[in-house]
Structures are given as C-alpha cells and as structure tokens.
Design a binder for these strands. Structure first.
Lengths: 195, 195
DNA sequence: GTCTATAACCGGATAGAC
DNA sequence: GTCTATCCGGTTATAGAC
C-alpha cells in the first residue's frame, strides 16, 4: 500500500492520543518514549510534534479531557430526588464509566506525579471537583437522616478509594461480569452509609 | 570532614535501600536514576553496584521485604476468635501499618508495572496472599452468620481498595489524625459487611 | 569499599529537505 | 505533514586504580 499523502491531522491527531493513552496505561508515562508512540501510529518521532507541543502536553491533555468527561457525565446520573438515589447513581456511573475507559482512569490515578507543577494543580482541581460531588451527596443524606452521621470528606475519600480500586484488579476475562460486580459494590456502599 | 575509608557495607547497604525507597516513592521508579540514589547516600553511581546487582533488584527487594512484613504482622493482629474481631484487627492493622510505612506501601501499589516478569509474579503472589487472608475472614464470617452473604473475593478486593486508597490522600498535616480516620474507616467496613 | 573514567546506548526535541 | 539526520544530555553498568 502506497504511503498516504496530504492532510490527515484530523485523523492522525486522535490516533496519536489513543496510542499515547494505550502506551501510558500499559507501561507508565516515564517508561514510554516518543519513538514508541510514533511507531504505534506509523510515524517517525519528529512528526509527533505536529500534534503535540511535547510529551508532557500529551499526558496533561489526556488527563484533563478524561476528568472533564467524568465530571460532566456524573452530573447527568445524580439528578435524582433522594440522597440514596443520588448515591446509587454516583456509584453505578463510576463503575460503568471506569470500565468503558479503563486506560484513561488508570492514567488519571497513576500519573499525577509526572505532571509538571502547573498541570498538576489543574488536574488536582478537577479531581477535587469530583470528590466534592460525592461529599455533597453524603452531606445531604446525613441532613435528611438517610445516612449515618460520619465525616463527609473522609467518607467520600474512602468510598472513592473503594470504587477506584476496581481498576487495580478487574479484568474483562474474570470470573464475574461488570454487572454482578456493580451490584456487589453498590450493596457494600449502601450498607456502609445507611442508617 | 575527611572522607571515610574502609568497610561500611553493613551501614551503607541499608542507607542505599532507604534512599531508594524514599526516591522511588517521591518520583517513581522510572524517573529515579542511580546517580540520584548515589548522591542521596553520598556515593558515586558506580559504587552502588557493591550493594545491589542492579536497579531492578533494588525495587524488587524493597517490595518483597515490605510484603513479607505485611503478611507476617497481620497474622499477629487477626488471631481473635470471632470473625468480626478478626476483621477489626485486619482493618486497624492495615491502617496503622500503612501509616508507619507510607513510602513502602506507596511503592508496592504503584510500581508493580516496573517489575520484570519473574519479579512481578513473585510480588503478585505475595499480594494475593494478603488478599486471601481478608477473603478467609469474610468467608468465615458468612458461615457463622455474622456477615451478610456476598462474594468474598470481590468483597475483599473492594475493602482492600477502600483501605489502600488512604495512601492516596492522607497527609500527616491534614485536618484529622490517623486515629480518627481509623475509627471512621472501621465504622464503614463494619456496617458494609455485617448483617 | 569506593573512586574515576568510560562504554554502549537511549531519551526528547529540533532543523531542514521534500 | 512527514521524513531523515542530528544535537545533546541522560541512562545503566563495568573496568581498573587506589
């Protein structure tokens, strides 16, 4: 097949980001070279710099896009009336979202330390926004008497840890499907906080 | 001060491991160079190879020692009679152990992907041993009727995620002390699994 | 046991041809 | 838009002097 000519930035750009996502998730940001990313897309290393300023921007853009998507999509799933329904929406959305974007989720949790200071502050802010959504649900549930009284911040971080841990061990090929795991997790969370 | 001469391997060896632990935890294995570790101890890079075969062995030895300690120490805290007491021992031990060795814990969770295949298999086996201890406690508690029926493997992984998440956000200088957090976490776990 | 020096290699990023 | 070629600095690991 002849080498393609002409403009492909609208196709190649996404392909570069997808390759970076896949490789960063598999090997870690620091262990992946620009040459590897280029080879995955079928380019020479130099050509990558038409699509990204540098390696750091590649990581930062991936993380920011992921967290923006996460925050906007969770709002659509937590619009119910009661705190218990809101919590259920949050938990189920987290699990389904994190299954469908396992690589991005993994990067967002593992590569924080490879962000330069300014980028780190931005990403940390987006993570904090997500945590606060859960914290607010817990606070409302305590005020309504649906949830046992407990520090909302610590409880939110504990529950996010529980949910986030899924990416560490869940595999598509495992014994249980994501639907069964979703039920078990929701059951645990519900009993953990309800009166 | 004059440069020290003669044999110091019994002092320098541990200092090398401590420096590696600190630096790996702070910056990540891939981002730390042998030169940095050497500088931290006050050696030249070449001299490190008197104390370790290579950088990989440094990581592997740190992780194996940590997980061996974790597994043997948790047994001493989960020897109680009832499953609920065993679970409480497991949770409280995890939190205290992980606070006292934050750097090693962080490495054991973050640097798995930087282990070479054989080393990875060994470390993964030790992690699995730890998970199985919790799984066994949950299974006994279900058989005795103390815990609600729920898949013990998935429940164990969920609870370990909850506990392990602590290292991602807990800071010594934070609003709450580790004792208060320990109580909140134990309260969550207890309600999550009890009938 | 630790040093200096060096081998052999790989990293990100850029310049200029096409 | 992509290529080749290159810069320059970094990496792990080893050899041999002291």
């Amino acid at each position: 097949m002849a080498r393609k000519r002409g403009s492909h930035s609208d196709i190649t750009g996404p392909k570069v980001r997808e390759a970076a996502l896949r490789l960063f998730a598999r090997s870690g940001y620091a262990a992946v070279s620009m040459r590897q990313i280029a080879a995955e897309v079928g380019l020479q290393a130099g050509a990558l710099y038409s699509y990204t300023a540098d390696k750091q921007s590649l990581l930062f853009d991936l993380m920011r896009e992921h967290l923006d998507d996460l925050n906007s999509s969770v709002d659509a799933e937590t619009g119910q009336d009661t705190p218990i329904d809101q919590l259920e929406g949050f938990v189920r959305h987290h699990i389904r979202f994190h299954k469908s974007r396992a690589a991005a989720v993994f990067i967002a949790y593992m590569e924080l330390r490879n962000l330069e200071p300014d980028n780190f502050a931005t990403i940390e802010g987006l993570r904090r926004d997500y945590e606060r959504r859960l914290e607010a649900i817990l606070r409302r549930g305590q005020e309504s008497g649906d949830f046992r009284p407990a520090d909302p911040r610590v409880t939110a971080m504990a529950l996010i840890g529980l949910l986030a841990g899924l990416t560490q061990w869940y595999r598509e090929t495992g014994r249980l499907g994501i639907d069964e795991i979703e039920e078990i997790y929701w059951d645990l969370v519900r009993h953990a906080v309800r009166v």
